[in-house]
């Protein structure tokens, strides 16, 4: 990635024009650009991670890797684009917990068994924060307050099915508390609602609120992970405080079902190699990602585990609209 900017664009264009010229006889995979479909707008977490992976995957493969944003329908449109693409390895996608929830909530969304996870990139543990002006400084007083006033805190979260919504639901169960949940479209509006104290608490992942926590505007009370989060090392985990609550969003790369064995292997090892590079790790660290590079099996296992945790919540909330189970 050197040289002047426009030259790079031109080169990419020329490359594409050249490969577009004629269908080549079967050559070694890959011999044309690979597209990674992100089901969310540019700038979001899925997008940022997708682009980072694309950049380093390019170094491992002889072709360019392009990120395309196909937003809409709570991420379901992007996932469906991958599901319906030819299983040739040239169309991949990113997905997180949203794809699990959508597969139950939306009859038009892609069922879980129509996605083939190739690699896990990172996990993003759930957390709960309150505005500093609430005077709540630790999880214990948070719980005590809510036991005295059920529903007494307004919590900012996603609309039903989104990760921070599921976090709130699962946390209510784990701690036996009740929140008043108010939905926002995405994390950025939730943060601004928390800062402006339209909501008192928010079930946002740590990186969204770490700086505000450090600046003293927001108190992160606990992290739903096995270990503390490196961006906020002073915040304990739920487990440390004696509550059995572990839940994380993630970004995994997946393809349509039916990839040829050799293509699948090539992609999996290239993804693992890309995530193993020193520079990738440094860049991920800068963004605040908790890397958890794993191959296809690890990714599939996490997807199943999430499925098992999320499904009962969706059933109870009356959100299941499909026959899948």
């Amino acid at each position: 990635m050197t040289g002047s900017a426009p030259l790079h664009v031109l080169a990419a264009g020329a490359l594409l024009a050249a490969t577009a010229a004629a269908p080549q006889p079967a050559a070694a995979f890959p011999d044309e650009p690979i597209t990674i479909v992100v089901g969310w707008p540019a700038g979001g977490a899925q997008d940022t991670v997708g682009r980072l992976v694309a950049e380093y995957l390019e170094a491992e493969l002889p072709v360019s890797v392009v990120v395309t944003n196909v937003p809409g329908a709570a991420g379901a449109n992007g996932v469906r684009d991958v599901e319906q693409a030819a299983p040739d390895g040239y169309t991949l996608g990113t997905k997180g917990v949203h794809a699990v929830a959508q597969s139950y909530m939306n009859p038009n969304a892609t069922p879980l068994d129509a996605m083939d996870p190739l690699a896990l990139v990172n996990i993003d543990p759930a957390a709960v924060s309150v505005h500093a002006d609430t005077g709540i400084e630790d999880l214990e007083s948070f719980i005590a307050y809510l036991r005295d006033n059920p529903g007494g805190l307004i919590n900012g979260n996603d609309s039903p099915g989104g990760f921070s919504f599921l976090t709130a639901e699962l946390m209510e169960r784990a701690l036996d508390i009740e929140l008043t949940k108010v939905p926002y479209q995405g994390y950025a509006p939730t943060v601004s609602a928390l800062v402006a104290q339209e909501v008192m608490s928010a079930t946002l992942p740590v990186p969204m609120v770490a700086d505000l926590h450090e600046a003293g505007d927001v108190n992160i009370l606990a992290v739903a992970a096995e270990e503390r989060h490196f961006r906020a090392p002073d915040v304990p985990t739920f487990t440390e405080l004696g509550h059995d609550f572990v839940f994380a969003d993630y970004v995994m790369i997946f393809g349509p079902v039916g990839l040829p064995e050799d293509v699948r292997d090539t992609l999996e090892s290239a993804l693992l190699a890309a995530m193993d590079s020193e520079d990738f790790r440094a860049a991920a660290d800068g963004i605040g990602l908790i890397l958890d590079p794993q191959g296809a099996d690890g990714a599939a296992a996490l997807m199943q585990a999430t499925d098992a945790a999320v499904h009962p919540v969706l059933v109870e909330a009356g959100l299941v609209e499909t026959d899948a189970q």
Binding site: A12, A14, L16, A20, T35
Partner: peptide, 14 residues
């Protein structure tokens, strides 16, 4: 085609 497929990497049907 040159501008959209070439420079902007839009996969126009072909």
């Amino acid at each position: 085609q040159l501008v959209f497929a070439g420079l902007l990497l839009v996969p126009l049907p072909r």
